[in-house]
């Protein structure tokens, strides 16, 4: 049996995107923008605070950081939990030392389980972004609208004032953007198709995608790919310098990267974290800012 005839029909085959969430706008056809502050580039540090249950359902896939060995996988449960009780406090201190603010993407389960952690993040003046219910509550197209809405409402309840949303495992259904915009989020960290915040259209209004670079992820580089701490730090600093150097040609741009507490917050990685933070804090032409500050700064740009 060959494939059905319509396998070779292409209903969206025309100029531009095959979806209507945003327009095609290639880098060399657009006017460079300038930030009111005069900085050439912006960087956002995203710190995920995640709850990994011992019995993840694995629907529609297991979160990359989820349990690996048979139940009860105390090894991975406690290794992940290390981030929320020890590693994150090292990161908070390192940020304080160089007076930088980050965006903490927090699972609702973490907010409910660990109020002293949320208090420490808030008191230090960082942004808190809503990050779904937990790593075991992945948004995907197999959920009904009502099921997904319940996840978002559950999350919203834990973070009544958050503007920024990140989906668990950065996974979405076809409805996620409509539903989170409807719930009042106007910034999203799941999509990374541009080097500036990009407004995406939803039924409830615009939502801004801030590019969180998957290829710079600490979990991916340090744990999946086993790169060294020095290689990892070099790449983040190079990304920042690259945008400063490209400013003359392309104008102001931004990027975001993760510092995952159970990975970056290990004692033997803190020297690299300090090097990254020192490097960014002292880089001429760069502003390190939260997701919300970055989106706001870019919405006031001039061409």
């Amino acid at each position: 049996m060959p494939l059905p005839d319509d396998y070779l029909t292409y209903p969206h085959r025309s100029h531009g995107m095959d979806q209507d969430l945003y327009d095609w706008d290639p880098a060399d056809r657009r006017a460079p923008v300038q930030l009111a502050s005069g900085v050439k580039a912006m960087a956002t540090i995203v710190i995920p605070l995640e709850f990994f249950p011992l019995n993840p359902p694995g629907e529609p896939f297991k979160h990359p950081g989820a349990m690996k060995t048979p139940y009860p996988d105390l090894r991975h449960f406690t290794t992940r939990d290390y981030g929320n009780r020890v590693g994150v406090y090292r990161l908070l201190r390192a940020l304080e030392t160089v007076s930088l603010k980050a965006t903490f993407a927090v699972n609702a389960e973490i907010a409910r389980r660990y109020p002293p952690l949320i208090e420490a993040v808030r008191t230090a003046g960082h942004e808190i972004a809503a990050y779904g219910v937990s790593t075991a509550h992945i948004h995907h197209a197999g959920l009904s609208g009502a099921e997904e809405l319940a996840l978002i409402e559950n999350t919203r309840k834990a973070f009544p004032n958050a503007r920024t949303w990140m989906s668990p495992a950065r996974n979405q259904s076809f409805k996620t953007l409509d539903l989170i915009r409807q719930s009042g989020f106007d910034i999203c960290l799941d999509w990374e198709m541009d080097q500036r915040p990009l407004a995406m259209g939803t039924k409830a209004g615009e939502i801004h995608a801030l590019p969180l670079m998957n290829e710079l992820g600490d979990f991916k580089l340090l744990l999946d790919r086993s790169q060294s701490e020095d290689e990892w730090a070099d790449q983040i600093l190079e990304a920042a310098r690259f945008h400063i150097d490209e400013h003359e040609q392309r104008g102001a741009q931004c990027f975001a990267f993760t510092l995952t507490p159970y990975a970056a917050g290990q004692p033997f990685r803190m020297h690299a974290v300090r090097r990254i933070l020192d490097g960014l804090a002292n880089m001429d032409g760069l502003a390190v800012a939260t997701a919300a500050e970055t989106v706001d700064a870019f919405s006031e740009t001039k061409t």
Partner: peptide, 16 residues
């Protein structure tokens, strides 16, 4: 029946 949380220890912030 499995449980999401082993409840083997309580949350204790490292700082302070």
């Amino acid at each position: 029946m499995t449980r999401p949380d082993p409840n083997l220890y309580d949350y204790w912030p490292y700082q302070g």
